[in-house]
């Protein structure tokens, strides 16, 4: 899922400062699961903004709140039409995709981001998410025992591990496991160490010509493994 984090309250207050009436718009999918922008967070943020403006005495905003099932699908935004016509801005707690689809769907009303979209990740434990996929468009997981070096190695190298590994940790952050040590151990237990001894040629970065589009069968043309 997409993992995001709510922006600091002060930053959100600066973003909404020019507008009087604001719709705080939650998203019922990824950001609900990671607790950044679901119905609950919309309600908390609404309360926090009200308290802040009473305390600060600077600017008087009126707020509406609503949460759609998915902001990244236009059809889920259609029922919002009446509410949007009442406001001066939409503060979206959806991911960066959600904010942009909202902006496209309602071109006359400014769409503001209420969260920082972080990464695609998995739940590690309650309240902790770890990045797992870089969406590189050229999946190498078959060669690396199901552990992604492009995402989880800080240098994203294909012929790892580099020389900086210490006690199984990354040279750049001793709290993070070295992806290549994990790959080595898993390949060893799978009896596939030949895969780490093989040479992998430079990556094909044409698989990520931004912005990307995935349209059925034509996605095959986007690249493909060169290893």
């Amino acid at each position: 899922m997409i993992v995001a984090q709510q922006k600091p309250l002060e930053e959100i207050r600066r973003l909404i400062a020019p507008y009087e009436k604001i719709l705080i718009l939650g998203c019922g999918t990824c950001v609900t699961v990671c607790g950044a922008g679901g119905e609950r967070e919309v309600s908390f943020l609404h309360g926090a903004l009200r308290v802040a403006q009473v305390k600060g005495g600077d600017g008087v905003h009126a707020f509406l709140e609503y949460t759609v099932k998915r902001q990244c699908d236009r059809e889920f935004l259609d029922p919002l039409g009446d509410r949007v016509s009442e406001v001066d801005a939409i503060l979206s707690l959806g991911c960066g995709v959600g904010v942009q689809v909202v902006a496209e769907r309602f071109p006359d009303v400014p769409a503001l981001p209420g969260v920082n979209t972080s990464f695609m990740g998995a739940t590690e434990q309650g309240g902790v998410w770890d990045e797992r996929c870089a969406a590189c468009g050229d999946c190498r997981l078959a060669e690396t025992a199901g552990i992604c070096p492009i995402t989880r190695c800080t240098k994203g190298i294909l012929n790892g591990p580099c020389a900086g590994t210490k006690n199984g940790k990354c040279e750049a952050n001793k709290d993070i496991d070295c992806a290549w040590v994990l790959i080595y151990k898993r390949l060893e237990s799978l009896g596939q160490l030949d895969k780490i001894r093989r040479y992998y040629p430079p990556r094909n970065f044409r698989t990520i010509p931004r912005p990307r589009r995935l349209a059925g069968i034509t996605s095959i043309d986007l690249g493909g493994s060169n290893g």
Binding site: P161, A163, G164, T165, V181
Partner: peptide
């Protein structure tokens, strides 16, 4: 090129030199 015999995992360091 450089080589580090002391980085983890030790077992991969000679094969990595071979690469």
């Amino acid at each position: 090129a450089a080589a580090n015999p002391f980085a983890d995992p030790f077992e991969i360091r000679a094969p990595r030199l071979a690469k």
